[in-house]
Design a protein around this nucleic acid. Structure first.
Lengths: 214, 214
DNA sequence: AGAGCAACGTTAATTGATTCACGTTATTTG
DNA sequence: CAAATAACGTGAATCAATTAACGTTGCTCT
């Protein structure tokens, strides 16, 4: 299988959203133009993306929703259940726990961790909260592969190190710090403050129609 | 003044973070290599970025921290206070209100809005909560230029329309929807679920060392 | 059945961002 | 004070991603 560029993967997931909606609505076919609009790219871009894993559409009808969706999920391996750990049960951590609860059937935050012994033992938004010292044990037991960091910037690197030691393969980091990680770990950063700063910056600039965001 | 690419602007903000820390620590000069490491790019990239607004460094010393920081802030207009409105006082909205409280001196969320009349009139994390019907009036009065959307996907477009009507210039959207907006409004998307999905996807792929995230 | 068309698949061209490579410059050292 | 050096500034090359262009295909309509 050929490696698909990161940007493309992102769009594929987004196509999936629309496809799902279309399927629910009973539509049998979808045009590149529709997918394009939903993700704010050109139709050519969509067709090119779908080319990546050879799925033929036809003129007049476009692509068969059912089939496309199946192939998409197959490639994105959305079937495989992924277990996630969240580190840092503060305001943001809690929000993500409740926000994310049952949002995707195959992704679940199975455990949350904090340094505060007060928080350990409790259950928040369906997730058991453990003391951070339990991370390695529980990650191994539950086969957790993804970690979410919502701790303060000062302890983010330390949290990341713990996650790596616990054998996770990917990290989603909300702390405003550049984490140093082994090359084989996938890192995705979400820096909310940075995003607000960018928005503020461009709000002052004249009509630049740039569209961004993970 | 020449327009600076979005990607570059993002890095400039991040250089700012390190520079601020360096200044606090009393350092007078900084090398491109240091900035590069802090943001995980090459030193050449850093020098090229700084080229954009002609600030000369010297070999041996690198760039003068104080001066660079001043010029950076000047360009990024970090001085200008920006007022922000947040729509949707749910879990995520509340988390952002408290998370963001006094994080940046010149950016402040001056008002929060919700459709729930129960929430109106209360104060959350230093922000007054109003009913959504007050948006246009208050946005005008307070000169709010940036909107943050933390409402459910179903009402995100509606919220965006209201923000546009209220005269804001930039939107930070947390809802998993592609908003349709006039070209002159800057849009930045943060889709947490999508990011987790990406992390899950790449956690299954072999050692791709990609670094991403706004 | 043939003409028209609307959307697909793909190659080619373009654009933009990043990296390379190298000449330049200001110290530091023998 | 000349030589070495370490980092800067920048043109050129590379690389990746997007857009343009166009031949192909399979309906639809007369």
């Amino acid at each position: 299988m050929k490696p698909i560029p990161t940007r493309t993967v992102e769009r594929l997931f987004r196509y999936g959203q629309l496809l799902h909606a279309k399927k629910e609505a009973g539509a049998e076919a979808v045009f590149s133009r529709e997918l394009a609009q939903a993700v704010d790219v050109s139709p050519e871009q969509v067709r090119r993306d779908l080319m990546n894993f050879h799925l033929k559409g036809t003129p007049q009808q476009g692509y068969p929703v059912e089939q496309l969706l199946r192939k998409l999920y197959e490639h994105l391996e959305t079937q495989a259940a992924t277990k996630i750990a969240l580190l840092g049960v503060g305001n943001l951590g809690k929000a993500i726990l409740s926000y994310f609860l049952r949002r995707r059937p195959n992704l679940s935050i199975v455990a949350a961790f904090d340094t505060d012994p007060e928080k350990a033992g409790r259950v928040y938004a369906g997730s058991q909260v453990y003391h951070i010292s339990q991370l390695e044990k529980i990650a191994a037991r539950e086969n957790i592969t993804v970690g979410v960091i919502t701790v303060p910037a000062a302890s983010a690197q330390q949290s990341a190190d713990l996650l790596v030691k616990a054998g996770i393969r990917a990290i989603l980091n909300f702390a405003p710090t550049q984490l140093q990680l082994p090359r084989e770990i996938y890192l995705e950063n979400i820096d909310i403050t940075l995003s607000i700063e960018k928005a503020a910056y461009f709000s002052r600039k004249s009509g630049t129609d740039r569209r961004h965001g993970k």
